[in-house]
Design a protein around this nucleic acid. Sequence first.
DNA 1: CGGGCGCGTCAGGGTTCCGTCAAAGACGGT
DNA 2: ACCGTCTTTGACGGAACCCTGACGCGCCCG
Lengths: 227, 227
Amino acid sequence: MTRVLVVDDEPQIVRALVINLKARKYEVDAAHDGATALKLAAARQPDVVVLDLGLPDMDGVDVIRGLRGWTRVPILVLSARHSSDEKVEALDAGADDYVTKPFGMDELLARLRAAVRRAEPAGGGEDDVVVETDEFTVDLAAKKVVRAGKDVRLTPTEWHLLEVLVRGGGRLVGQKQLLQEVWGPSYGTETNYLRVYMAQLRRKLEADPSHPKHFITEPGMGYRFEK
Amino acid sequence: MTRVLVVDDEPQIVRALVINLKARKYEVDAAHDGATALKLAAARQPDVVVLDLGLPDMDGVDVIRGLRGWTRVPILVLSARHSSDEKVEALDAGADDYVTKPFGMDELLARLRAAVRRAEPAGGGEDDVVVETDEFTVDLAAKKVVRAGKDVRLTPTEWHLLEVLVRGGGRLVGQKQLLQEVWGPSYGTETNYLRVYMAQLRRKLEADPSHPKHFITEPGMGYRFEK
DNA sequence: CGGGCGCGTCAGGGTTCCGTCAAAGACGGT
DNA sequence: ACCGTCTTTGACGGAACCCTGACGCGCCCG
């Protein structure tokens, strides 16, 4: 099911959108200000964001930038402003589409479908969702980890961290990037989270947690997953 | 350079678009009907298509379908029709965006940039920047150095220094520039840092650290990386 | 020929960074 | 409202890293 994050401070607009989206079998989260939007986006990992630029707490364009700092999720901007400059600024900040209020619900939904369709898996070769090591197997699609024939139970945060590392495919992933992708854009410096959760992952997956073979620390830089 | 295919039967609109696009360093092809558009799209492989729906020879939506049959190239639709149905039909047929005439050139260009930006990583894949020498391999994307089949562990400062040198691509890099890029703008004169860390790099990467083959000192000037 | 300068090498000490543990706080379900 | 699970914090020892000063060497220039 496609998950949508709706961000708008006008309750009636939010209500209208939520009703229409849910009727069409979308899963919907809603936020009424920028800070909540950024937090929800990190927590819920929506497939598309519908964002009103007129928010009470911060500039809508800054919300776009906040999102673009760590995700490529499609962003569909709503705004009462018709000015060309506004549109250009939002689009260049990373928005995918710009709709002016008042808008037709049919059109909005069509633009939303277009945005989602676009973001879908590129027609090519990403069936490499299973990664194997000598001690455990990670299935990214099924969200499952198997070790010694048994399923390993991971908490949401543990899984999210593992996912980002494994998707890195042997590349170094900076601690800032890890923090922002797992905990959200505003968590760029709480490196203690990383220490705690890396320890958890190693305890659950490494043969000798104190001498990790697969979750390598690169001091001062970040972590790396190795087969 | 980004290649754009403009499809419109009104000469003045085509002219305006071509002029504006070329001024911004796009490569532009133009077609005035649907059949030509489909042929040109196949022949020239544009990075984005700007398509007017009102064409003399065929329905614009059929052009969209014709393109979508074999390519995911972004399609930006232009149309004089404001009706919601038209928009929905075009978008659901596979268009990426829909702009009604008359349109602001700034806005159109911004939407075009958004469409191109979005499409970039899907088509290209991931480019690993790898530099090889006879004794070691540097992977700039993965932040990894391999020598004799084994990973070499570099500290953040060592890596940063190596990165600046390697990106220099064989050119001489002045000591002031090295210092400022690695240690920050206020460190222009502490050349002893360079001596210490160059020694570290050589010890870790050169076969004979006291007679370096890859990290060359240019006395009084700076350092150079050579394959 | 001798002093100065720039470069390479080495080792110690202060600081930052990481792994680990434990406990309090937040959340959800029964 | 209670309990179990997950997340967030704080504290601490130990390791890794960065800076610093000292020394030796070769080269240029006086």
